[in-house]
Every structure is written in C-alpha cells, then in structure tokens.
C-alpha cells in the first residue's frame, strides 16, 4: 500500500465518476449528479483524493473529501465538509484523517473562520475522527425520517470570529 494524496482534477471525467461511485456506496439515498457538480465544479480546489499507487488501479481514488467555502450570513467565512469517504478495505489506516487535515489546512490558508459539518449521531467513526481534531457539537437536529436518526452539527473554530454570534458581528461585515 502506498497512499498518495492529491487535489481533484476537474478536467478528468473518469475521476469525477469514480468519486461519485466511492461516495454513493456509503449512502442509502444517493446524491444526484447536481450535488456533485455543485461542490466539485464550484470549489474544485477543495476536493482531495487518495489513491493507492501500489494497487492495480492507481488512478481510482480509494478515499476522498469534498468541501466548499462561503461567507456565512456575510460575517464569517465558513468552510464546510460536504462529503468524506474511504473505501472499506482501506479504513483504519489514517487515510480519512489525512484527507481532513489537508482540506482544513487549505481552508485555513484561504482564511476560513471556522469549519462546519453535519454527521449522524450514530456515526461514531466520523464523530471520533472529527472530535479528535477539535470539532465540537453545536446542536442536535431532530430527523427521524426514513429512520435516518438525529444528526449533530459540528464546528471547528479557526479564528475568534467563530466565537461570536453573527448578530454581533454585523457591523464588521466581511469584505466580499
């Protein structure tokens, strides 16, 4: 196993398709193609993949993280982790952790004030992973439909702006 991490190549349609396949495998209800287009085409620089150079298919990602970044209520820059998946046979080797680190590092360099994401209450792998990196649970969302279970909203603060209610940041709006 020789894992290499690299940014998405948005011109590579094959890569696009394999990312979709990798992520769909973990979802009970898949995202439509638009969801992928929304993230990958608008923020291609915020998607990273992991490939195994020693495998027979070094072009097919075995892990990936998909993020976006935009102003939240016009007062702080919020990074958002939309999707994260590692192929089941590659789990437990720190691949997800590395992908998350690379993505957050990038968003921090882009001056994000915080990183946000949502994950299901029952997903202890994801909760352990993110909470180990300093994310805390901000709220719980009631969502019993389709037996989906509740979800937590997690935030990792990167700057002090993350720690003040947006109502009180209004006078210092972001220059966008």
């Amino acid at each position: 196993m020789e894992i290499v991490y690299k940014p998405l190549d948005i011109r590579n349609e094959e890569q696009f398709a394999s990312i979709k396949k990798l992520i769909d495998a973990d979802l009970s209800e898949p995202y439509s193609i638009y969801v992928y287009r929304y993230f990958l085409n608008q923020w291609p620089e915020l998607t990273y993949i992991a490939v195994d150079n020693k495998s027979g298919t070094p072009n097919i990602p075995i892990g990936c993280i998909v993020c976006k970044m935009d102003p939240h209520r016009n007062v702080r820059l919020r990074g958002y982790i939309g999707m994260l998946a590692v192929e089941s046979t590659y789990r437990g080797h720190g691949i997800a952790k590395k992908l998350v680190e690379i993505a957050i590092d990038k968003m921090q360099r882009e001056h994000c004030d915080e990183i946000m994401l949502e994950t299901e209450v029952e997903n202890s792998a994801a909760l352990n992973l993110y909470e180990g990196m300093g994310f805390i649970r901000m709220k719980r969302m009631f969502r019993y439909y389709l037996n989906e279970g509740d979800a937590f909203k997690l935030i990792l603060p990167l700057t002090e702006r993350s720690c003040t209610r947006s109502t009180f940041l209004m006078h210092g709006r972001l220059a966008t």
């Binding site: 915080e114 990183i115 990196m133 300093g134 990792l156 603060p157 990167l158 002090e160 993350s162 720690c163």
Partner: peptide
C-alpha cells in the same frame, strides 16, 4: 491538541451563546 485550533478558541465557541 488540535492542529488547527486551540483550547481557548474551542472553549469560546462553546460559550458563544453567552458572550454577549
């Protein structure tokens, strides 16, 4: 310790609802 944040920030985020 978090690579990207620090204890104070995390604490302050938790207490965000009250800081005003």
């Amino acid at each position: 310790p978090s690579k990207f944040s620090n204890e104070r920030l995390i604490h302050n985020l938790r207490f965000k609802p009250f800081n005003s």
